[in-house]
């Protein structure tokens, strides 16, 4: 019954679909993109929603046409079939109209692609290495912060955040353009953070790069999951990113990559005092 209730509630929500804010991780019964925390994800969401309305329109158009044809031209209502097999105007129209729709779509699509890909003047760099099966984070710009390995937490420790929570999160400042260098030590992996709109494969022998900039006021903990099949524990190498204020990040760096007792950290959007 709970299932039925959930489905009805979700279907009701579907009607007012885009534009509902979600948290920085998957949501219970969620059916839309995760809430954007970066300009790239904001643009990505906009384009997704734009294309969504187009494809919904096309689907509904075909559905209504089919429904009408099945009703109007059933053997019962239309016992004698016509023999029309050609209509040049119609055939030209259903070639040209889709082309126009695609042209309308391709302009914002290219804009997003180049915005996403063109690395701006970044202010700091982090290096991510995929291992089997954990992530290693390094801060080349902050040599005093030693690189560290981020392991998934077991169910007993992670609780509700099992398969998302790690024992050491990547710490980055808010409102800062950050370049991410991604590579792998063995198998393929993919560094994906849905709320940031990034997903980049970690490939051995190759350094891929992407970037993100968390919007001001969006401090908090963000979660992602490995997104390229990498073996037995593919499902169990989550990505946890703690976005802190610039000041907190400076003191974190000054403290060689550890929060002092005075500094607060952010757990799932709410502020938690560290012991």
């Amino acid at each position: 019954m709970r299932l039925v209730h959930n489905i009805t509630a979700s279907l009701a929500l579907l009607l007012i679909m885009p534009g509902i804010a979600f948290a920085n991780k998957p949501t219970d019964g969620g059916y839309w993109l995760q809430d954007a925390a970066t300009p790239v994800m904001e643009e990505l969401t906009k384009l997704h929603n734009f294309v969504f309305w187009i494809i919904l329109g096309i689907t509904l158009f075909v559905m209504v046409m089919m429904g009408w044809i099945m009703f109007r031209f059933s053997a019962k209502r239309n016992p004698t079939a016509s023999k029309t097999t050609h209509h040049v105007g119609l055939e030209v129209a259903w070639t040209i109209v889709p082309i126009i729709i695609l042209l309308v779509m391709v302009v914002p699509s290219m804009r997003l692609l180049y915005f996403q890909d063109a690395l701006p003047e970044t202010e700091m760099t982090i290096k991510v290495t995929g291992n089997t099966w954990n992530w290693e984070y390094a801060y080349p710009d902050h040599p005093n912060v030693e690189s560290f390995i981020s392991n998934p937490l077991e169910k007993e420790d992670a609780g509700d955040l099992y398969l998302l929570k790690t024992d050491a999160s990547l710490v980055v400042p808010v409102d800062t353009k950050i370049k991410v260098l991604i590579t792998s030590s063995n198998n393929l992996h993919s560094f994906a953070v849905p709320a940031f709109g990034i997903k980049m494969d970690a490939v051995p022998g190759r350094i891929n790069e992407t970037w993100f900039e968390v919007n001001p006021g969006k401090e908090g903990t963000y979660f992602g999951q490995c997104s390229e099949l990498c073996g037995v524990n593919h499902y169990k190498m989550p990505i946890e990113i703690e976005v802190v204020s610039k000041e907190d990040f400076q003191s974190w760096v000054a403290n060689d990559g550890a929060f002092t007792t005075a500094v607060v950290s952010y757990d799932n959007g709410s502020i938690v005092l560290q012991d």
Partner: peptide, 26 residues
């Protein structure tokens, strides 16, 4: 599965965070 994907559930996972339970159940 469209909903799961939009919400970020990766493919080829034997186990998943509890948030994805509803649509997997369906």
């Amino acid at each position: 599965q469209h909903f799961l994907g939009l919400n970020g559930m990766p493919r080829r996972y034997v186990d998943y965070p509890q948030e994805f339970e509803l649509w997997n159940q369906v």
